[in-house]
C-alpha cells in the first residue's frame, strides 16, 4: 500500500472511507472544542469510536493530521487503551464482566462455554459478523455478579442459560427479520 499523499501525516485529510458522513462532523466538533490541541487525542478517538463503532485506519490518519500528532502515536494510543477497538464490531455486542466478584460467581465458566458456542475468543467477532464477544475488566456492577452488557444494556445475575438464550435470540431473531429490517440503520431501534 503506497502512501496516498505526499505528506501524509500532515496533509489535509480527504474525508474518508465509508460515506461523506455526518459522523465526521461530530469528530470535527470534538477536535474544535479542544482547539485542535494534541492533548485532545484520546477524547477525539472516543468520538470516532462513538460515531463509527471502531477506529478505522483512515480515520486515525484523519485525526492525526488534524491534531498534528504522529501517526505512530495515534496507533500507540489506540492500542494501549483497551476501550478502543480497531475492528468493526458485529451487529450485536455481548460484553461479559471478568471482575473479581463475577469471577467468584462463575464468570470464567460462562465465558468458556460462550466462546465454545460462538467459536470465537473474547475480543473477536463471529465469522458472520453477527456477534462480538468482549470482556470487561469490571463493570462496577459487582452487586449483580456475574454481570454482562448486551447491546448496551447491563444485565445482572447471569447464568449460562440466560446468556445462551440471549445469544440464540439474536441469531434467530435476525434470521427471521433479515429482510424486513434490512433498511434500518440500527436494528435495535427498529420497532
Amino acid at each position: 500500500m503506497p502512501p496516498a499523499t505526499a505528506s501524509p501525516a500532515l496533509s489535509s485529510p480527504s474525508p474518508s472511507p465509508a460515506a461523506p458522513d455526518k459522523r465526521l462532523r461530530i469528530i470535527d466538533r470534538t477536535m474544535r472544542l479542544h482547539g485542535y490541541a494534541s492533548h485532545a487525542l484520546i477524547e477525539t478517538l472516543h468520538a470516532v469510536q462513538e460515531a463509527f463503532g471502531y477506529l478505522d485506519p483512515d480515520l486515525m490518519r484523519y485525526v492525526a493530521g488534524r491534531l498534528k500528532v504522529p501517526l505512530s502515536r495515534v496507533y500507540a494510543v489506540a492500542t494501549f487503551y483497551h476501550f478502543f477497538t480497531l475492528k468493526p464490531p458485529g451487529e450485536h455486542t455481548c460484553v461479559l464482566c471478568k471482575g473479581t466478584a463475577c469471577h467468584i460467581g462463575g464468570a470464567a465458566e460462562i465465558l468458556r462455554q460462550v466462546e465454545a458456542m460462538l467459536g470465537v475468543h473474547a475480543g473477536e467477532t463471529t465469522a458472520d459478523k453477527k456477534i462480538s464477544l468482549m470482556i470487561a475488566r469490571c463493570l462496577g456492577s459487582c452487586g449483580l455478579a456475574p454481570a454482562g452488557v448486551f447491546d448496551g444494556t447491563i444485565v445482572g445475575n447471569l447464568t449460562l442459560d440466560t446468556v445462551v438464550n440471549k445469544l440464540q435470540e439474536w441469531r434467530s431473531h435476525d434470521a427471521d427479520h433479515r429482510k424486513s429490517a434490512g433498511d434500518c440503520e440500527n436494528r435495535d431501534r427498529c420497532p
Binding site: A37, H82, F83
Partner: peptide, 22 residues
C-alpha cells in the same frame, strides 16, 4: 474519559492520559 487502562489510576499515568498521551 479514561479508556480502559487500570494503570491510569497511578497518578503520573493518569496525568499522561489527561494530556492525551499513553
Amino acid at each position: 474519559l479514561g479508556a480502559g487502562a487500570f494503570v491510569c489510576g497511578e497518578e503520573t499515568a493518569l496525568i499522561a492520559s489527561i494530556e492525551g498521551r499513553l
